[in-house]
Design a protein around this nucleic acid. Structure first.
Lengths: 214, 214
DNA sequence: CGCCTTTTTAACTAACTGGTCCGTGCATGA
DNA sequence: TCATGCACGGACCAGTTAGTTAAAAAGGCG
């Protein structure tokens, strides 16, 4: 639109809203809902505390908005992996690699979800849009499993949601519990050698498991 | 003249301390460090808020005491499984089953650890005793892996800590993320059929993985 | 008994924190 | 140009919260 005018105020509601959301995401991820301070968010914002309430009504509503935005972000990133054309095993490896990288690269998302679980996911339940979000990944997994069974790559009888859980659990835990784990075992999980080894491990474990019925 | 039902007071510092710790554990597990209320703990205690400070000095110190006690509890429960005499595969299955059951039966422990991770494990790092706690499980796993390799049950080259992580991740995640997971996928994880299926799944996955080099 | 530890009670404070009041600046269209 | 509605901000309020104070008194060990 127009150029920056240093003296005059520029009304840019969209920008203000997004700015608040971005700062709030960091704050809630770092301290949880209860530990987060509205004043702290306001300070790091380019606007004021009053504006937070102007746009988001309450601390809880702001928190929910942060949560929804975080989930929306994944949806837009996922599913352009073109797995349909790949061999089942290769497709699965690609999918696992993607999940692994996502959690590793978005610790703030992992922390938000962890915090929400401590609060029994009550806020997430209030949200209508989050629920039907991960349907696509289940559909993708179902397709891979079927094709793998047809061509003999997989013989294991397994439910797609269970499989998703097996994969998610490892990828998520690596990030969500990194601090206590590395404190106890004195091991740096974000080291690139560890990173690669773990990525290969979860993929190999899943593939081994699916290969044969036992 | 009217007298109280309880005429005599019993001085039992140990009991008082334990009572405070037990109530505090519930409160911290339910709401996290920031969300927990000292007054709320005091109310549900058979003693008073003053006693909390008499024995624990501050909210943070109380929280740390809760954390340490939770970890100490596992240590005392584990390692009487007599795995040394069992075949490697059977020993491993027993160990996995035990980890699985532990997390399932102690959601308050899982929540405490989750919360501590959100806070970057800063309190845990202050504790001297928690660190050298899980050495025993690594030793046990190392032993099982060596025996399994010797008798040909396992051919996979793997580090014991990585293996522990693979097992823990699934068991922990099932509990720590139960609320968001079941909200998204509309599945009740504490149902006994699901419980048994998942327990078998993680054991089979680990065994399959260890069996062959790929 | 004599002395130290444990326990009780209730009021209190100082800082904090979520939320609001009320007034001002900005842009636009009539 | 002026009215109107949206965007904005500083100061403030009212409730909450960790932590304290003080005065007593009962338990228990030697």
């Amino acid at each position: 639109m127009e150029k920056h005018e240093q003296v005059s105020r520029k009304n840019d509601p969209e920008r203000t809203r997004e700015n608040i959301l971005a700062v709030a995401t960091e704050e809630f991820a770092a301290h949880g809902l209860a530990g987060a301070r509205v004043d702290a968010i306001a300070e790091r914002t380019r606007t004021s505390k009053r504006m937070i309430y102007y746009y988001f009504t309450s601390k809880e509503d702001l928190y929910l908005a942060v949560l929804e935005k975080a989930y929306r972000k994944i949806r837009s990133r996922e599913a352009d992996l073109k797995l349909a054309g790949m061999q089942p095993v290769a497709a699965l490896r690609t999918l696992i690699s993607n999940t692994f990288d996502h959690d590793e690269n978005h610790p703030e998302f992992v922390r938000l979800v962890s915090g929400e679980n401590i609060l029994l996911a009550v806020h997430m339940r209030r949200s209508t849009e989050i629920a039907d979000l991960n349907v696509s990944i289940i559909r993708t997994l179902t397709d891979i499993l079927e094709r793998g069974k047809a061509d003999g790559s997989f013989q294991r009888e397994i439910d797609a949601i269970d499989l998703h859980m097996l994969i998610s659990a490892f990828c998520f835990f690596r990030v969500s519990n990194a601090h206590t784990f590395s404190t106890i075992f004195r091991r740096n999980l974000s080291e690139s050698a560890t990173y690669e080894r773990h990525k290969k491990m979860i993929a190999d474990a899943v593939i081994s498991y699916l290969r044969l019925a036992m």
